[in-house]
Amino acid sequence: MPSIKQIARNEAASSRFVSGHSLCRGCGIPVVVRTVLNSIEAPVVVINATGCLEVATTRYPHTTWQVPWLHIAFENAAAAASGVETAYKALVKRGRLPDEPIVFVVFGGDGGTYDIGLQALSGALERGHRFLYVCYDNEAYMNTGIQRSSATPFAANTTTSPAGKQSFGKLQKRKDLTAIVVAHHIPYAAQASISHWQDLSDKVVAATRLASPSFINVLSTCPLGWGLEPNQTVRFARLATETRYWPLYEVIEGHYRITEQPLDPSLPIRAWLEDQVRFKHLFQHEDAEVLARIQREVDRDWNNLKRRSEADAQWFARHSERLAKEWTGSAARPAPAMTSRTNTNP
């Protein structure tokens, strides 16, 4: 597993994503991009959906990217990656490219992944193209000014699900995209967060060892959209995991494993909600019913995940050796740790 020193060394030796971009102060996205790209030793090619990341890093004639990078449109990053990966296969087959590993990494936001890009993602996962799809999930259309997406949590105030005299914000629960991805029977899918860099880095290593599609859904704080000071980015990402709203787990060959246990399993969701402007309306008049419903759903989802993870513990025990041996993906790197991980970044 790359340590923080190795990640820092990779960043210093050849930064793949340099400074000078125009992402907001406190934006979680560069944390996602740097952690992902610095955890991959092999050459990478990045495919990017339209969104904050693309707009803020490639204003012509400038670029933040020090790797081959492609953007086409909003809803088609996974289809574009399918084309790039197939071209790689064709060119290697015909001797026009050396048979050396390239890791294809796709970055898309929640709008470009949960919503408009879902069909392209589903198609590419089913076809089995070899790429790592990383969704930086900041829970709304932030690039266009905080509109609700299907990743926006229940009761959040956005410009298209505003709280008002007759409304407490978004009326629907967020979509469980990771579960949808798992339903494509791909061998590796995970949820991660910018607050747990080691966990994210380990998942990137595990995901990119495979000659198949893999998917990591990374919670990424948006200070602007969530209503936070820029210095609160990591803290609120961490609170999402600690309150069990955004559990960190991985799904290997359909088997679930929680990779970070919350330090205090009784920490209420309120601890995450309370200081975010997008949930402020729930506390102005203490909307007990809505708050209770949010807590109930967090508890239910967490308990489901916990039960699944416990049921799969034996499978992991039986298969850890095989997985470590079999995972000889294209990128030469150490075997993934199959033992349970400890919280290395408290």
């Binding site: 495919i47 492609l70 086409i72 449109a73 809803e75 088609n76 289809a79 574009a80 990656a81 399918s82 084309g83 790039v84 197939t86 071209a87 790689y88 296969k89 064709a90 060119l91 087959k93 015909r94 026009r96 490219l97 069909q119 392209a120 589903s122 198609g123 590419a124 089913e126 076809r127």
Partner: peptide, 25 residues
């Protein structure tokens, strides 16, 4: 020995074509 991608829509057909062509194919 062309590589065929049987995509899930024409939108993806064209998107994959752009990806492949830009890749160098």
């Amino acid at each position: 020995d062309t590589e065929i991608i049987n995509v899930e829509s024409e939108h993806s057909a064209m998107s994959a074509a752009v990806g492949a062509a830009q890749a160098g194919a």
